[in-house]
Design a protein around this nucleic acid. Sequence first.
DNA 1: TGAAATTTTGCAATGACTCCAAAGTTTCAG
DNA 2: CTGAAACTTTGGAGTCATTGCAAAATTTCA
Lengths: 213, 213
Amino acid sequence: MAEGLRERKKRQTRQYISDVATHLFIERGFDAVTVAEIAEAANVSVNTVYNYFPAKEDLFFDRSAGVADRLARWIRARGAGESAARAVLRELRGEVEAVSPRIGLMAGYDRFMRVIQDAPPLRSRLWSLQQEIHDNVVVALREETGAEEGDPLPDLMAGQICWVHQAVFVHIGREMLVGREPAEVSREVLVLLDDIEELLSEKVLDYAVRAVS
Amino acid sequence: MAEGLRERKKRQTRQYISDVATHLFIERGFDAVTVAEIAEAANVSVNTVYNYFPAKEDLFFDRSAGVADRLARWIRARGAGESAARAVLRELRGEVEAVSPRIGLMAGYDRFMRVIQDAPPLRSRLWSLQQEIHDNVVVALREETGAEEGDPLPDLMAGQICWVHQAVFVHIGREMLVGREPAEVSREVLVLLDDIEELLSEKVLDYAVRAVS
DNA sequence: TGAAATTTTGCAATGACTCCAAAGTTTCAG
DNA sequence: CTGAAACTTTGGAGTCATTGCAAAATTTCA
């Protein structure tokens, strides 16, 4: 089954609603846009909006699907002889470096941040996203290290690793909000990543090293 | 001026409303209690409730005033030759040890956690509380170390220090939710604190050491 | 004791979100 | 091609948090 008309239509509708909403939010702010307005602008009923999105905040974060297990994925995909933390550091560096060439990726990121900045509900959502990331990392670490049931270590390690990720993005967000240039920010973040790595203990940097096959 | 009748009454009313609300939340859960019910149970109008508390969640967290600057206070009050991180570790140990004798302090803490557990809005509030704590720590560290304007170190260090605090409380919360005995949990947390300390790098443990007078 | 300051309250309104049953569409077997 | 089954969209009514406003009650103090 390729994909029925029904499926395709649903996905399009969903995408369209989310796009329209995001546009409106960026234009006028999260609070200043009512769900009713979004529905009207997207040519659907309010109920349809709620059919796709459980809450208003989800309209804004729809594009961030796949973010929740980023770190866990990176960890599982780490190379032989590489630890969980080092894998995450490497991937982060890669991602940040990849921005310089294609700066376009970050265009508009500041307006995006601005919306979040002054909408408490959106910030809450970001936090629960962090929580999800953390939980996924814990699961990954448990599986990768075969830690015992009550072992608190995977949890602590996940905390450290997620902290790295979070520190980077909070920093990026802050800089973008102040209007810094993407290229400059990306260069600066590479330095930050070095600082961060220096702050991690050997224990953390060497946790969950994948056996060299 | 000692304190007018008006002031006293206000404080009593506030306290009473919050108490009534907390009781109801613990009895039936956050969602299952409407602000109107709380108002009625406290013999005030709904508007009066909103006079004192900006949002429903604040009714539950009113008692946690003073929590926001705990860490910052601990850091500022650290002893000569002691670093910020070590001060926090010491205070945390002290607090945890102090629980064993007076176990009463933690009675009911599990029901308290339960309410938070299944009320997303309450969890959000906890997160913003963490954020407040973090921000206060950053300010404290900046002042104590005289770090330069753009120096990202205080922020990173604050992240590590707050992580310690958070790890401890998340752990306590989880254990209490599972119905563990307070005394047992407290003993276990002391071990956890050792694990945590071992995970911190020297850099973190030795940041912002107060000069020996 | 009475006017000024402050708090409490009632009323009305907005907006997010839920429930339900009535259309409207799409799918698919016959 | 056709009609019933499955699914989506919609309208409408209702709950609840939260806000704004002006009247009513209370407290303060000269």
